[in-house]
Computed example of a mutant assay.
Amino acid sequence: MDISNAIVVGGGIGGLAVATVLARQGVAVTVLEQAPHIAEVGAGLQISPNGLAVLRALALDGALRGRGAVRGQAVVLRDYVAGETVARLDLMRLARDQQYYFVHRADLIEVLVAAAKRANVSFELNAQAATLRPGALPVVQMSDGSTRRAEVVVAADGIHSMARPVLNGADTAAFTGQVAWRALVPNTSNHPDEAHVTMGPGRHLVSYPVRGGNLINLVAVEERADWAAEGWNHRDDPQKLRAAFAEFGAEAKEMLSAVENVTLWGLHRHPVAATWQRDGVVMLGDAAHPTLPFLAQGANMALEDAWVLADHLARLPRDAALAQYQRTREARVRRVIAAAQSNATRYHLRPGPVRTAAHLGLRLASKLGPGRMIGAFNWLYGHDVTRRP
């Protein structure tokens, strides 16, 4: 190990994971978190086999299951009118060591915080980082005027990362013309252990169970011209959500009718950063490569980043490790981002010949070649960063 200490800015999934791996390798790690405590608002996420591989390598998969993670049986594409199945991606056809889980984000955060503390990671809460300076000993400038220094500073602080303009200049994010609502509702409909993607004209609804199947996580995406701010915590009126999805029937209508609290955020497309690292400062997760939520890979990419970054730092001198980390990760995250964008187009087809033909093709592929259908995701789910070539 070429370094003895590190600072991680941001106490989210990627930040906590990289802090834990580095600390287990003997690095003295401090996490700077701007909030008064590390917690997450109620929301679900999907941990696919590639992300689970990192949690398993950290011996945290059992703890996550113990907190009510639901093993996913399938991803089902459904039509919006009557909920008719268009296609089914059978997750039980994955390789024996590959599992897929639906989890509550707060539960994963709690598991990662506990692991970080066991590894002797230090935490500074209410710690607002303002900017940083790369160098032989990078400096984090705090909003109160104080400074922090470490041999490596990992910016795991999300899409508005303070490191991004330092390393790349001003961002060029653009509103995608899509907004998304998030909500949790009681599972009174006996939602199966599946992710349902209910597809309608210009919009779609994703639902899956979390917390041992007691709750259903909802993500509803609509195309619209009106700009909306980024960020998950903008409260909205549930009636606006129901109005936008008024044509959705069957189980989708039932779930939407149960929404009492909902948040809305605008989806913005940020380019993959050209430069992820320089002179001891490095970005991971959304700070380096934000992705739209149409492939459920944001958390999984952050977990992969965390492992690869820590692994390179364990084996190479600092600057060589950081440069190799970007080279190792960039092509993969670009492929994931492109695949996510393609899904958005497929989910929102308008009635007409194109939609009819597309859905017919999905139905045939699902019925006639279910093994081939899940096999098309081997490049994504079968990728295990914890196994060196």
Results as ranks from 00 to 15, higher is better:
4 S>K: 15
5 N>M: 12
6 A>G: 01
11 G>T: 03
11 G>F: 13
18 V>I: 06
20 T>G: 03
29 V>K: 07
31 V>C: 07
33 E>F: 10
37 H>I: 13
43 A>W: 02
43 A>I: 08
47 I>S: 12
50 N>Q: 15
52 L>V: 14
57 A>M: 12
62 G>N: 13
72 G>N: 02
73 Q>F: 08
75 V>L: 10
78 R>M: 02
78 R>N: 06
81 V>Y: 04
101 Y>H: 07
104 H>L: 01
107 D>T: 01
108 L>Y: 03
110 E>G: 01
115 A>G: 07
119 A>L: 03
126 N>S: 05
130 A>P: 12
133 R>K: 14
137 L>D: 06
137 L>M: 01
140 V>A: 04
142 M>W: 11
150 A>G: 06
163 A>Y: 00
165 P>R: 06
166 V>H: 08
178 Q>W: 15
183 A>Y: 08
184 L>C: 14
188 T>Y: 12
191 H>Y: 14
198 T>H: 10
215 L>V: 04
217 N>M: 08
222 E>G: 11
225 A>E: 05
225 A>P: 14
237 D>T: 02
243 A>T: 13
254 E>V: 10
255 M>I: 11
257 S>C: 13
260 E>K: 13
263 T>Q: 00
264 L>H: 06
269 R>L: 03
269 R>E: 07
269 R>Q: 10
271 P>D: 07
274 A>I: 14
274 A>D: 13
281 V>N: 11
289 H>V: 15
289 H>Y: 09
291 T>C: 01
291 T>Y: 08
293 P>S: 05
294 F>C: 00
296 A>P: 09
296 A>V: 08
297 Q>G: 00
301 M>G: 10
302 A>V: 05
304 E>A: 11
310 A>I: 11
310 A>V: 14
316 L>Q: 06
317 P>E: 08
319 D>Y: 15
320 A>W: 06
330 E>V: 07
335 R>S: 11
337 I>G: 01
340 A>K: 09
344 A>H: 04
353 P>F: 01
353 P>L: 11
354 V>E: 15
357 A>T: 13
363 R>C: 01
367 K>A: 04
372 R>W: 07
372 R>Q: 11
373 M>G: 02
377 F>D: 10
377 F>V: 10
381 Y>F: 14
382 G>W: 14
382 G>Y: 06
389 P>C: 04
